[in-house]
Design a protein around this nucleic acid. Sequence first.
DNA 1: GGAAGGCCTGAGAGCGCTCCCACAGCTGGT
DNA 2: ACCAGCTGTGGGAGCGCTCTCAGGCCTTCC
Lengths: 337, 337
Amino acid sequence: MTENDPRPTLEEVAALAGTSRATASRVVNQSPKVSPSARAAVERAINELGYAPNRAARSLVTRRSDSIGLVVAESEERIFGEPFFASLVRGVSDALAGTDMQLVLLLNRSDQERSRVQRFLSTHVDGVLLVSAHAEEPLLHQLADGPIPAILAGRPLRPTSLPYVDVDNVSGAYQAVRHLVDGGRQRIATIAGPQDMAVGVDRLAGYRTAVDEAATSDEDLVVVGDFSTGSGERGAQELLERHPDIDAIFAASDLMAVGALQALERAGRKVPADVAVVGFDDSVVATTTRPQLTSVHQPISDMGRQMILRLREALEGPTLVPSATVLPTNLVRRGSS
Amino acid sequence: MTENDPRPTLEEVAALAGTSRATASRVVNQSPKVSPSARAAVERAINELGYAPNRAARSLVTRRSDSIGLVVAESEERIFGEPFFASLVRGVSDALAGTDMQLVLLLNRSDQERSRVQRFLSTHVDGVLLVSAHAEEPLLHQLADGPIPAILAGRPLRPTSLPYVDVDNVSGAYQAVRHLVDGGRQRIATIAGPQDMAVGVDRLAGYRTAVDEAATSDEDLVVVGDFSTGSGERGAQELLERHPDIDAIFAASDLMAVGALQALERAGRKVPADVAVVGFDDSVVATTTRPQLTSVHQPISDMGRQMILRLREALEGPTLVPSATVLPTNLVRRGSS
DNA sequence: GGAAGGCCTGAGAGCGCTCCCACAGCTGGT
DNA sequence: ACCAGCTGTGGGAGCGCTCTCAGGCCTTCC
């Protein structure tokens, strides 16, 4: 029985099954209060007609949209750069499969639209995943005060009431530096990320902890970049000028590590013989340099997956949602250290 | 007047404006048949109450969802790799700003869900952007036969009735090889992409055209890879064994070019002195190798933008939608050639 | 001055669904 | 045998919106 009929309605299903619309609805919504026979009849009718519920009609009465918004508040290069965005989306999507929720993407719109976002969101999505690198994103505060649940990608620089999921940047940086220490490095410098992002702060904190612990040097071998290749190159150059005797550089991003590699080569330093280099992100570029880059791997897809899990907890139950979920990072050893 | 009232309805707007719900609706929907005074009153009321239409209610009656689906049928590495996915999404999102359409993301779900996709799509989205690398994607045929408009990202290997937007792979490859010819290269080999993807076929075609035109050699200096670094490395190695005298390699992806660089180095060939290398994609890795990679730039964001434009044409009007929209590519010269 | 036509408006139906409520048919306790 | 209680069912209202239709008012033309 192929049906030409576009979009059968619950009413038709009920008619075919010989029940009322209400009972058919109960079957669709997995209500336990349906007799086995009625359930079977309705299920048969659903299959025969190829019925799928009309989402709009359902939303109208339930006041839920069964969709969640992935909001990217800024078009930061770091966010769209590999592997972040694609990996995150993949993880989110994985976790959403099996659910009948859909993912609505909202990239940084113009500021005037931004002001309407709060209302927009509350109309169209049941929950929000917010990706925003910088501290003073107004949307963040709107969401914190608003009625719809939201989960942040990454620790916000200032504490908020919103739960976040993050990778363990502190531990990753710590592992990287420990690895350098274990390799006998004495003067370990870092090219840190921007200090107005938690990810920059955390990676620097991990570096500091490991360096202090090793007590190899008491100077401050820190320079700050912006995660880009260019800033890494300039940073490494500056480090070499100020402290010609450094024998290792921990860069807070792979791109900055690549820049450092370039600066070191120009300065005639051999990697890893003279100076060891470790990056962070474990991105594609880590395998395309020579030597290949030792780097800290971060499970971004899992971060996406966890964000959905947390959001569903917030959506469904009275369960307390953890205010922070931190996923482990691990060092991937390659030729540069 | 801050309103605590969550979600004012059209009825309330109308009441405040002193009109009927119908007139308020006309104002919201920009109907011309409203008197200036009524329009002004309703607009005032809308602002005062912070009214935003309930999408579900609207969808229910208009039978449109005002959202379009971005369907990624396979989790090909190439698609999620930088810069493709993020750039495409950014372009799509740009083109959607200003519209009140929303973007719904649908990644490759399980096969069993796949079978329901057609129905799912017709329920929930007004149009589809389909990203699918391989030829025999069943969804492609479903969409071609189905009622909802769809636009493909990239030329399908076999012609379909669906319009597509693509970057000019043929021309890009042609330019790359012409550049090598102009640089005096005599024996130009290529590491082609998979021949079951149009992108692989087209880039090889561009190579062949340029090589034939230059008539520098009549041998077939072609080896096939899968766009990955590893396959590029193996491919270059094979080329060097079979044709030790090659003086240039055009790789159909940057990652394969990176692999080629590695193979060439191992073989003791200098780049670009002994062998010139050109890649394709102009991705981040092109700037992280040494020497940096000459590569063909492809406007992926614009592709996303154009896809939306085509889709809206298909959605809105009786306008004929071009069956193909091809965007120019251009060569970015760097150190490797 | 009256009919014809224009413009704007409001009443009302209904999109497909969920959920409240009433009630039919059983069981089981007294 | 009677009432309580429980389970499963259907009727019906109504979510917020759009759109058709009828009609009121005002202009315009004969």
